[in-house]
Simulated scan of single mutants.
Amino acid sequence: MNEIILPKAVENFIAATNAHDANALNTVFGDGATVRDDGTTYTGGAEIREWIQGHLINPKIVITPTSFAGDRLVAFGDGDFPGGPLSFAFVFGIKDDQITDLTIDPV
C-alpha cells in the first residue's frame, strides 16, 4: 500500500483527534477558523472548542486515512456513534500550518 503524505496541519489534526486531546486540537485551528459539520457552521475559537468536544472528544473518534489529494482527505471515522465506522471527506483550508477552514461530509 502506498504511503499517504499529508500536510503538517492535517497530520496534527489526525494525531490530536486520535489521542482525544482537545487542547492539541484547539492549537491546530487558526484564529477565525471555520468548521462545517453535520449541517452546522462553527466559527472562531469558542464554537470550534465546543465542536471539538462534542464531535471528536466525547465520541472518542479515531480517524484512519484512506487517501489524500489536493486539499481533500478521505478517511474512516470510528468511535462511540451509531453506524460507525463511516467514511468521511475532510476538505481543509490551511495557512501557516494551521487549519483555517474544514468541511466534513459523509462519503
Score class of each variant (00 low, 15 high):
F92G: 00
G54L: 10
L73F: 12
I5A: 15
P59F: 11
G30A: 15
D97Y: 03
T66F: 07
F90E: 04
G39F: 10
A24D: 02
N18L: 06
G77D: 01
D78C: 06
G77I: 01
D37W: 03
F81I: 13
D101R: 06
F13H: 02
T34R: 03
A89L: 10
P7V: 02
W51M: 02
H20L: 00
P65I: 04
G84N: 11
F76N: 03
I63L: 09
I61P: 04
L6D: 09
T66K: 06
D96M: 08
A46I: 15
T27E: 09
D37L: 01
D31I: 08
H20F: 05
D101P: 08
E3G: 13
N26R: 07
T64G: 00
N26E: 12
T40N: 14
A22N: 10
N12Y: 11
L56W: 03
V62N: 09
N2T: 08
N58V: 06
I48Y: 01
F92E: 01
D80T: 12
T66W: 01
S67M: 09
A46P: 10
V62Q: 09
D31T: 09
E47N: 09
A19D: 07
A46S: 14
T43H: 15
W51Y: 11
A9T: 05
A33H: 02
P59M: 14
V10W: 01
T27H: 11
E50P: 04
A33P: 00
G79V: 07
K8V: 12
L56R: 00
A33T: 05
E3Q: 14
G83P: 14
A22C: 08
D101E: 12
L86Q: 11
Q53D: 14
D97M: 07
P7N: 11
A9H: 06
N26M: 11
E11H: 07
N18G: 09
T100N: 03
L25I: 04
F68Q: 09
F88K: 03
N12L: 10
D31R: 08
P59Q: 13
E3C: 11
N26T: 15
R49S: 15
N12Q: 13
P106G: 11
K8E: 15
I48C: 00
N18A: 11
L102A: 03
G70H: 10
G54P: 01
G70E: 10
V107C: 08
T41P: 00
A89R: 10
P65W: 03
V91E: 09
F90R: 00
D97P: 05
W51F: 06
A19K: 12
G84S: 14
V62K: 08
